[in-house]
Amino acid sequence: MKYDYLVVGSGLFGASFAHEVKAAGKSVLVIDKRPNIADNVYTQDVEGIHVHRFGTHIFHTNDKEVRDYVNRFAVFNHFTN
């Protein structure tokens, strides 16, 4: 099969880019050496608890458009750093 895009790595950028081009009607193949998406921000569900496999992460932005975009995909806890 021929793809419009090849994305190497399914971290935050790769996964977001693949999602957006797929939503735009393009075909995309994502390859990664790890068996999970989201690279180092991957979480596992362990008995109903989200466990950060590679350590905790803090997402912060002052940009409302970015905040609205990421909140389409995940629920964030409020945190003041």
Rank of each mutant, 00 (worst) to 15 (best):
E20P: 02
D45P: 12
H60M: 01
F17P: 03
F79I: 07
D63L: 06
I31R: 10
M1F: 06
G14C: 05
G9K: 14
L12T: 02
S27Y: 06
F76Y: 04
S27K: 11
D45E: 15
L12Q: 01
V46E: 10
I58D: 01
E47C: 13
L29Q: 03
V75G: 09
K22Y: 10
S27C: 08
Q44T: 12
A23R: 14
N40D: 04
R67C: 05
D4H: 07
D63C: 04
L6H: 05
F79A: 13
Y3F: 15
T80A: 03
T56E: 05
T61Q: 08
Y69P: 07
N36Q: 15
S27Q: 11
N77E: 14
N62P: 03
F73G: 07
V46A: 10
H50L: 14
H78D: 07
H52A: 00
N81T: 09
R34V: 04
H19W: 00
Y3M: 12
S16R: 03
V51T: 12
F76E: 00
A74T: 09
I31P: 09
T43K: 14
H57S: 06
I37Y: 15
V21Q: 09
T56A: 12
K64E: 01
T61G: 09
V7T: 15
D45R: 10
Y69G: 09
F76I: 03
D39R: 05
D4C: 02
F54Y: 15
V66K: 13
A15K: 10
F59V: 09
A15G: 10
G14R: 08
D63I: 05
V75E: 10
G55N: 15
P35S: 12
D32R: 09
F54M: 14
H50I: 10
S10N: 13
A38S: 05
Y5H: 09
F79W: 07
V7K: 07
H60F: 02
K64F: 00
F54Q: 12
R72G: 01
L12S: 03
T61L: 13
E65Y: 00
K2P: 11
N81L: 02
V66L: 14
D32A: 01
L6N: 07
K64T: 00
R72W: 01
R72N: 13
T61F: 12
R67S: 05
V70L: 15
E65L: 06
V75T: 07
E65W: 02
V51N: 13
Y3D: 12
A18M: 02
N40R: 08
N62R: 12
G11T: 02
D39M: 04
S16N: 02
H57I: 00
Y69S: 13
D4E: 03
K33A: 01
F73P: 02
L12G: 03
H19Q: 05
V8P: 05
T80Y: 00
